[in-house]
């Protein structure tokens, strides 16, 4: 039986792993090659690497970092952040990544999703959706009843800075139709808060697509992973700071999940 996946994420800026809260207040969390190797050895099911370097000049060095991380891994490796076209995708794959994750480029030009999936296969197209709750009701949006009230989920781009007015649930349906192989859904509201994943968002997405969904944003302790798997039935759960600062090693979380009946690879 297919296991649920635990995915550590490296947010990399200028060649270093950093972590912030709700996409700001970044602090240093280590060397991407060392962390990638450690996670792979500790039983991570996959590794995600998001380049959040701002300037184009510094971005050129990213391919080398990707290659150095890839050399240390014997698990699947996804790279995203700042990808603008099919040429970037090709370079990232050639440097050892298995999948690429796209957000801004896909929103600005959805055709790129089809183009990449035709050229390299749907399995390497991960669409990252950064979503934030919007309680301003709009009848054209898919309104979801949450504990905090009725809201819709809005897609943000440019590293969580720019709202797009796009409905995240409709966007998820669309991208899964036109070539996405997997969705990486991050709750901006929960990112770095350690309050747990936005289960209502994850459930709403899972109900609408038939491709694997990775939950992201908010994991702070083992029970948050359990909630994502048991309540929202996501396929994978991604986290960063909970692993970086050794609060909970991957093994501890995996054993906890197994004891609680989640099918997991130990």
């Amino acid at each position: 039986m297919l296991t649920k996946r635990i995915i550590p994420c490296l947010d990399v800026k200028n060649g270093r792993v950093v972590k912030g809260t709700q996409f700001v207040n970044l602090r240093d969390a280590g060397d991407p090659v060392e962390l990638g190797k450690r996670y792979s050895e500790e039983g991570a099911d996959e590794l995600v690497f998001l380049d959040i370097t701002a300037s184009n000049e510094n971005r050129k060095t990213i391919f080398k970092v990707v290659k150095n991380v890839a050399k240390e891994l014997d698990i699947p490796f996804t790279v995203g952040g700042g990808i603008s076209g099919i040429e970037d995708v090709r370079k990232i794959l050639l440097n050892g990544a298995d999948k690429t994750s796209l957000n801004t480029a896909a929103v600005n030009n959805p055709e790129i999703i089809t183009e990449i999936s035709k050229k390299f296969g749907t399995q390497c197209v991960v669409i990252a959706i950064d979503a934030k709750r919007n309680y301003t009701l709009d009848e054209n949006k898919l309104l979801i009843k949450t504990k905090e009230g009725l809201c819709w989920f809005e897609v943000y781009i440019m590293g969580g800075k720019v709202p797009t007015g796009i409905d995240a649930l409709k966007w998820a349906e669309k991208v899964s139709r036109i070539g996405a192989g997997e969705l990486l859904v991050t709750s901006i509201d929960r990112d770095g808060t350690k309050k747990g994943y936005d289960i209502e968002l994850m459930k709403a997405i899972i109900d609408r697509v038939n491709i694997p969904v990775i939950a992201s944003g908010g994991a702070g302790e083992p029970k948050h992973f359990l909630e994502a798997f048991a309540e929202a039935n996501v396929d994978a759960a991604l986290a960063a700071s909970v692993f970086h600062y050794e609060n909970y090693p991957i093994k501890v979380i995996k054993h906890y999940l197994k004891e609680n009946g989640v099918n997991i690879r130990i």
Binding site: L2, E182, D235
Partner: peptide, 13 residues
């Protein structure tokens, strides 16, 4: 078939 998620992606025994 359409009864399962496609692609079959992840770790399996």
């Amino acid at each position: 078939g359409s009864n399962v998620k496609i692609p079959h992606m992840g770790w399996n025994n």
